[in-house]
Design a protein around this nucleic acid. Structure first.
Length: 855
RNA sequence: GCCCUUGUGAUGAAAUUGGUAAACAUAGCAGAUUUAAAAUCUGCCGCUCUUUAUGGGCUUGGCGGUUCAAGUCCGCCCAAGGGCACCA
C-alpha cells in the first residue's frame, strides 16, 4: 500500500486552485455573502505559528461557508508600514521599501504553502501609494467634515538622537537606543475627534452580540463614560474661580478641600512668584514619565495661598492645593475633595490633617455616630449632615445639586470620558505622509485631491538622527497650493493604526480609484467573522469602529459597525529549555531521551525544561512552520492547530501532538484507499434494505455531518476534530458484507467523511475526492445534507437513579410512556435491592433520559 | 486596589446548557505482527475498598447552599492568567 505523500500532493492541489482561480470571488449581489477576515500581518519576515493558527481558523470557516453556498470574501494583505522597517534600514542599511517587499514575497510563499483559500487577486500592501493615497484623500474628507484638528501635544523626546520616541521605545524613562533620559516636549500634532462619537461607541457595544464579552468590557472601560457635573467655586480673596468635574455632587457638604493638577493654568499663575511651588510642579511632571512605580501610592499636595467659598455652606472656606494625583487631561483638571467618600481624598486628608465629614450614611447606621476611619465609604446610603439634602438618596441629592447649580449659573450636568482624542501624527519616515502644506500667508493648506497621493521620497538616508523626511534636501519644499508661494510640507506621517482602520473596506474593491466602491462595501461589510489576537481588543478594534463611523459620516459607505462577529484566538505556547549557563535553547537543537529529558544534540548537555509560555524569539521556544510543513505537510499542521485545545484558549505545541495529527492523516488515507475497490463503482441509487450495521453507519454519517458543521459554526473546532475521529473510526470498524445496502452506506460514509474533513485538511480531501472518482474539486463541492430521520435512534438508554445515585441502566424504546418506564425501572433487580425496606416518596421520570426514585 | 476569565484523570480536553462525569486524542502498560525496530492492529488505562464482582464507596480548586438531581445555578474563600491603573 502506498503512503500519502503530503508535500507532492499539497503542491499539486495548490497549483490547481491557483490555475482554476478557485478562490477568486466577485460581487455577485444576488448571492448571500459571507465575509471572513483574519487580522492581516505585519511583514516581519517569516510566518510564525500564531499566524498559522489564526489563518487556519479563518480558513476553516471560509471553506465551510463556501460549501454552504455563500459567496465568501476571504482576502489577505499586508500591514506594511511601521518602525521595524526603519530599524532594519538603520541596522542593515537596507531601504525600508526593499526590506518590506522582500518580506512580503517570502511570507506570501509561506502562506501559499499552507493552502489557505485566500482570494489573492485582492492582495495589497498598505505602503503602496495606491493604498495610502486613498487614505490621504479620506483625511481631507474628514477634515472638511470637522473630524480632524491640530493642537499642541506632548511627545517623548530623545535629546541625544534628536528624535521622537514611541511609548514602547521608552524603557525605564530612557531612550532604547541612546540611553538618554527622555524628556517631554510639546509638538503640534493632528488629532481625530474620536471623543465626539464616544457615546455611540459605548452604546453600540451592547449590540455587538457576536463579540467576546471580555473585549466589550475592555472597550467599555477604555471609553470610561461617566456622568457628573461641572461645578464652579469662587475665591474668598479675589475674583479667581475654579471649575471642577465631579460624579459625586451629592457629597458636596463633605468637601474639605479643592485640588488642582500641576499643569492647571492657575497653578502656573501662582508659581510665577513662588519658587517652591515651581519645584513641586516640576516634581509632579517627572512622576508622570519615570518613577511612577515608586511614588504611585503617595499623595502629595502644595497648599496655595487661596481659599474657595463653599457654594452652599455660608462661611465655609475650602483650602486649594496643587496635588500630584489630579490629572489635567481628565475632566477640568480640578476636583473638590470629599475624604469620607473617596479613598484618594481620604489618604490626602489624613496626610494634611483635613476635616473628614461623612455625609452618606449606610442604612442601619446613625448619623450622629457614623464615622469614616481609613476606608472611604463609597456605597449607597442616606444623605446626612448636609442641610437641605438630609434624608435624600444619593441619586436624589445629585439631581438636586445639579438643579441648583444650573439655576444659579455655577454648575451643569456633564458626561465625561476616559477616552482621549486619537493623535495620528508620527515623526517618522515609513508611514503615509500627511497631505498638508504650511504656508506663511495661507496657514494650514490641504493638498488638493487631484494632486494626491503625496508619495514618500525614495532617496532618503537614516545617517542623521531624526525624521528623514524632515532633513531630505528637497522633498518638503513645495509651492502653496493656494497662493503658489514657497511653502513647506508636513513632514509627519500617519499612525499605522490608520492603515489598519479601513483595510477591511478596501478589500471589497481593491482596484477602485476611490477609497472603495460604495456598492461593493455596502454588500460585503460588515465583516461577518473577524479572527485575530486579543492584544488588539482595544486600540485597533476601537479605531476601526471610529473610522468606519467617520467614513459613513462623509458619505463613503452606509455601514457603521465594521465587524459583526469577532473571535479572539489563544496563543501558541511551547516548553522552554535552558542550558547550564541559563541560555535559552531551541527545541529543534534537542534530542529527547527515553526518560523524557532533553539533551543538546551537538554537545550532549542535558537541559532544564521550563514552563510552557507563548512562543517568542527571546525565549527561543519557537517551532518554524516551514520545518513542520516540510516534514509532515500543511494538512497535518492545520489539523494539529485545530485539535484538542479550544480555539480561544492557549495551545500547547508538542511533538507528540504533531505526530498524532500526522498519523491521522495517514489513517484517513488508508481508510479511503482500503475501501476504494468496494465503493468505487457503487451507483447512487439507494437500495431499499439496510443491515443493522449499515443503519448504524448511516446514523454515524448523518450525525457527523450535522455535528461537525455545527461545531465549525460555533468555533468549536476541537469538537469537530473529535467527531471526525469517531466518524473515521466507525468507518474503519465497519465490516461490509458486500451487499448493496452495505456498499451504499460505506460509499455514503466515505464521501461524507471527505467532505466534512475538507475545510480542515483541504489537500488530502481534494486527493481523496479524486480517488473515489468524483468530478470537480472538493473545494467547490457542497456541504453534504444531513438527514435528521436517519439520526433518530429507535431505542434509548434510560438511567435509573435511587436518591440521585446511579443504580441501573435500561434499554427502552424511544419516547416510551412515562408510566411504562417507571414500571420497568421498579422491576429492575438492582433497583429493588437499593430500595429494599424503604418507602417510595416520589418518582421523577424525564423522558428518554432518566428515572429518579426518591425514598 | 478595581474589573474580567479560567480551575475536570499522568496530559490536551468533552459533557446535548440542571439529567449516565471523563467522549476524542496524547502519554503509558500488555499482547499480535516483525530476524529486529519503526509503522500498523487488538486490549487495558480517574482514585479507592473488599469478599476481585454484572460489587461497594469516592471524585470536576476548597467550604457551604438551592434542587428529586449540580462540573453546570447561588454565596464565601483559594490559586493561575489577562485588562485597567490616581479617570474625581
Amino acid at each position: 500500500m502506498t503512503r500519502y505523500n503530503a508535500s507532492a500532493t499539497e503542491a499539486k492541489w495548490q497549483k490547481v486552485w491557483t490555475e482554476n482561480e478557485t478562490f477568486t470571488v466577485t460581487e455577485d449581489y444576488d448571492l448571500p455573502k459571507y465575509y471572513v477576515l483574519e487580522m492581516f500581518p505585519y511583514p516581519s519576515g517569516r510566518i510564525h505559528m500564531g499566524h498559522v493558527r489564526n489563518y487556519t481558523q479563518g480558513d476553516v470557516v471560509a471553506r465551510y461557508k463556501r460549501a454552504k453556498g455563500f459567496n465568501v470574501l476571504h482576502p489577505m494583505g499586508w500591514d506594511a508600514f511601521g518602525m521595524p522597517a526603519e530599524n532594519a534600514a538603520m541596522e542593515h542599511n537596507v531601504h525600508p521599501a526593499k526590506w518590506t517587499y522582500e518580506n512580503i514575497d517570502h511570507m506570501k510563499s509561506q502562506l501559499k504553502s499552507i493552502g489557505f483559500s485566500f482570494d489573492w487577486t485582492r492582495e495589497f500592501a498598505t505602503c503602496d501609494p495606491e493604498y495610502y493615497g486613498k487614505e490621504q484623500a479620506m483625511f481631507i474628507d474628514f477634515m472638511n467634515a470637522g473630524l480632524v484638528y491640530r493642537k499642541e501635544s506632548w511627545v517623548n523626546w530623545d535629546p541625544v538622537d534628536n528624535t521622537v520616541l514611541a511609548n514602547e521605545q521608552v524603557i525605564d524613562g530612557k531612550g532604547w537606543r541612546s540611553g538618554a533620559v527622555v524628556e517631554r516636549k510639546k509638538l503640534n500634532q493632528w488629532f481625530f475627534k474620536i471623543t465626539e462619537v464616544a457615546d455611540d461607541l459605548d452604546a453600540e457595544l451592547e449590540n455587538l452580540e457576536r463579540w467576546p464579552e471580555k473585549v466589550r468590557v475592555m472597550q467599555k472601560n477604555w471609553i470610561g463614560r461617566s456622568k457628573g457635573m461641572h461645578l464652579t467655586f469662587n475665591a474668598s480673596q479675589n475674583d479667581e474661580e475654579i471649575t471642577v468635574y465631579t460624579t459625586r455632587p451629592d457629597t458636596i457638604f463633605g468637601a474639605s478641600f479643592i485640588a488642582i493638577a500641576a499643569d492647571h493654568p492657575l497653578a502656573a499663575e501662582h508659581a510665577e512668584n513662588n519658587a517652591d511651588l515651581g519645584d513641586f510642579i516640576k516634581e509632579c511632571r517627572k512622576l508622570g514619565t519615570s518613577e511612577e512605580a515608586l511614588e504611585k501610592a503617595e499623595k502629595k499636595g502644595f497648599k496655595l495661598d487661596l481659599t474657595m467659598k463653599h457654594p452652599f455652606k455660608e462661611g465655609c472656606e475650602l483650602p486649594v492645593y496643587v496635588a500630584n494625583f489630579v490629572l489635567m487631561e481628565y475632566g477640568t483638571g480640578a476636583v473638590f475633595g470629599c475624604p469620607a467618600h473617596d479613598q484618594r481624598d481620604l489618604d490626602f486628608a489624613r496626610k494634611y490633617d483635613l476635616n473628614v465629614q461623612a455625609v452618606v450614611i449606610p442604612s442601619g447606621e446613625d448619623v450622629s455616630t457614623f464615622a469614616v476611619e481609613n476606608i472611604a465609604y463609597t456605597d449607597p446610603g442616606t444623605i446626612g449632615n448636609s442641610e437641605f439634602l438630609d434624608g435624600m438618596t444619593v441619586e436624589q441629592a445629585k439631581a438636586k445639586i445639579i438643579d441648583l447649580g444650573e439655576e444659579g449659573g455655577f454648575g451643569s450636568a456633564t458626561t465625561n470620558y476616559r477616552l482621549r482624542d486619537w493623535g495620528v501624527s508620527r515623526q517618522r519616515y515609513w508611514g503615509a505622509p500627511i497631505p498638508i502644506v504650511y504656508c506663511d500667508d495661507c496657514g494650514v493648506v490641504e493638498i488638493p485631491k487631484e494632486e494626491l497621493p503625496v508619495i514618500l521620497p525614495e532617496d532618503i538616508s537614516f545617517d542623521k538622527p531624526g525624521n528623514p523626511l524632515d532633513h531630505h534636501p528637497t522633498w518638503k519644499h513645495v509651492n502653496c497650493p493656494k497662493c503658489a508661494k514657497p511653502a513647506q510640507r508636513e513632514t509627519d506621517t500617519f499612525d499605522t493604526f490608520i492603515d489598519s482602520s479601513w483595510y477591511f473596506a478596501r478589500f471589497a474593491s481593491p482596484k477602485s480609484d476611490a477609497p472603495f466602491d460604495k456598492k461593493a462595501v455596502d454588500y460585503w461589510l460588515p465583516v461577518d467573522q473577524y479572527v485575530g489576537g486579543v492584544e488588539h481588543a482595544i486600540l485597533h478594534l476601537l479605531y476601526s469602529r471610529f473610522y468606519t463611523r467617520a467614513m459613513k459620516e462623509v458619505g463613503l459607505c452606509d455601514v457603521k459597525e465594521p465587524f459583526d462577529g469577532l473571535f479572539t484566538q489563544g496563543m501558541v505556547c511551547h516548553e522552554t529549555y535552558q542550558d547550564k549557563e541559563g541560555n535559552w535553547v531551541l527545541p529543534e537543537d534537542l534530542d529527547k531521551q527515553s526518560d523524557g529529558t532533553f539533551k543538546i544534540r551537538a554537545t550532549g548537555e542535558v537541559v532544564k525544561a521550563g514552563r510552557s509560555v507563548k512562543m517568542s524569539k527571546s525565549k527561543k521556544n519557537v517551532v518554524d512552520p516551514t520545518a513542520i510543513i516540510d516534514t509532515y505537510g500543511a494538512d497535518t499542521a492545520r489539523w494539529f492547530m485545530l485539535s484538542d485545545s479550544p480555539p480561544e484558549r492557549d495551545l500547547e505545541w508538542t511533538e507528540e501532538g504533531v505526530e498524532g495529527a500526522w498519523r491521522f492523516t495517514q489513517r484517513l488515507w488508508r481508510t479511503v484507499t482500503t475501501n476504494l475497490d468496494a465503493v468505487k463503482n457503487v451507483t447512487a441509487d439507494q437500495p431499499s434494505n439496510f443491515s443493522k450495521e449499515a443503519q448504524d453507519l448511516r446514523r454515524m454519517t448523518h450525525f457527523s455531518i450535522a455535528s461537525i458543521g455545527k461545531d465549525i459554526e460555533d468555533f468549536h473546532f476541537n469538537s469537530s476534530v473529535a467527531q471526525t475521529y469517531k466518524f473515521s473510526n466507525a468507518i474503519g470498524a465497519f465490516k461490509s458484507n458486500n451487499s448493496e445496502g452495505d456498499l451504499f452506506a460505506l460509499r455514503e460514509a466515505i464521501e461524507s467523511l471527505i467532505l466534512v474533513t475538507s475545510p480542515m485538511m483541504p489537500h488530502l480531501a481534494e486527493e481523496m475526492w479524486k480517488m473515489v472518482g468524483k468530478e470537480g474539486l472538493v473545494s467547490d463541492a457542497a456541504w453534504p445534507v444531513s438527514r435528521p430521520e436517519l439520526i433518530q435512534e429507535t431505542s434509548v438508554t434510560v438511567v435509573v437513579q435511587v436518591q440521585g445515585k446511579l443504580r441501573d441502566k435500561l434499554e427502552v424504546a424511544k419516547d416510551m410512556d412515562k408510566a411504562e418506564v417507571e414500571a420497568l425501572a421498579l422491576a429492575s433487580d438492582k433497583v429493588q435491592k437499593a430500595i429494599l425496606g424503604k418507602e417510595i416518596r416520589k418518582i421523577i421520570v424525564v423522558p428518554n433520559k432518566i428515572v429518579n426514585i426518591v425514598v
